[in-house]
């Protein structure tokens, strides 16, 4: 892609390819179009925690030990997230997008790659405070069933709540953040009324297709783990899943500039990476 540099492929890269092929054949998961640098880093981090001598041994362990493979799956799907991560984005959502959604009788939202649910509950809080929640149906999806169960519970470590409270206030929160959870031992249990209109479901962006027409799709810091090829494919999926005039929100360091769908969108906020599907398409 760039002639400026000479990159060195090494034996480990070959082992990574064989590793990915092995788990595809065994379990059907295809990580071939994930970011190779990311996948290799996660594999090597896992390798040093085992007694395997190299990546090929790790591949053997992954295909013969299903419980071990479950760890690999969690390694590949990054589940580090926060409530109101990037408060400025959520402020923008609250102040600029919500007033437009408010004019619709019903609002369908897809939160793709919801991980353990922190961001989808953040969205639910904003919708509640704007008086829109009861008109919304939110589909929160992830490819990893284990992590969806965590999201469904909506129970988070109490240690994180201090940071979430700070984020909530920075994002323009209108109440006291403590209104939204109860404390039990060292955990914060989110108010179950936030869950009422959220449907948690398994959906794999790599293999599964569109399942509805949405007014808003939020998929932040998920596509970064894919290569450009797969990013392009998923961007087409989002385009097909948005109503005319619907909004796509990506992470603040992601862009659709490299994707063929770019022409089908207007940039709504270049700073927050919010795009609006053309109404004419």
């Amino acid at each position: 892609m760039t002639d400026d540099f000479k990159f060195s492929n090494n034996d480990e890269d070959i082992e990574v390819i064989l590793f990915l092929e092995a788990i595809k054949l065994k379990y059907g998961y295809n990580f071939g179009d994930y970011s190779r640098a990311h996948i290799k880093r996660r594999i090597k981090n896992r390798l040093v925690k085992t007694d395997c001598k190299n990546i090929l041994e790790l591949a053997h362990k992954a295909i013969t030990d299903e419980a071990f493979f479950a760890n690999i799956l969690l390694d590949f799907s990054i589940n580090v997230t926060e409530m109101f991560r990037d408060p400025d984005f959520f402020k923008h959502l609250r102040n600029e997008i919500i007033p437009i959604l408010e004019t619709y009788p019903q609002i369908k939202i897809w939160h793709a790659g919801c991980s353990s649910g922190e961001e989808v509950y953040s969205l639910a809080i904003i919708l509640k405070e704007s008086g829109l929640y009861d008109r919304c149906k939110i589909y929160a999806t992830d490819f990893n069933a284990t992590i969806i169960d965590v999201a469904k519970d909506g129970i988070y470590n109490l240690e994180s709540i201090k940071e979430y409270t700070k984020n909530y206030n920075l994002s323009g929160g209108k109440q006291s953040f403590s209104d939204y959870y109860t404390v039990k031992y060292d955990h914060a249990i989110l108010d179950s009324s936030l869950k009422k209109n959220i449907i948690f479901a398994e959906h794999n962006l790599v293999t599964d297709g569109s399942f509805g027409e949405f007014n808003l799709i939020i998929c932040r810091n998920v596509l970064i783990y894919f290569n450009r090829n797969l990013q392009n494919k998923v961007n087409n999926l989002f385009l097909d899943s948005l109503a005319k005039g619907g909004y796509l929100c990506l992470g603040s360091k992601e862009t659709i500039d490299y994707s063929e769908v770019k022409k089908q969108y207007d940039t709504f906020s270049s700073e927050h990476k919010i795009y609006r599907k053309n109404r004419k398409v």
């Binding site: 760039t2 990311h38 970064i224 992601e254």
Partner: peptide, 13 residues
């Protein structure tokens, strides 16, 4: 991270 085709990949891990 840097890919072997010269593209950066960002990571929130």
């Amino acid at each position: 991270l840097i890919e072997k085709n010269g593209l950066f990949t960002l990571d929130t891990s």
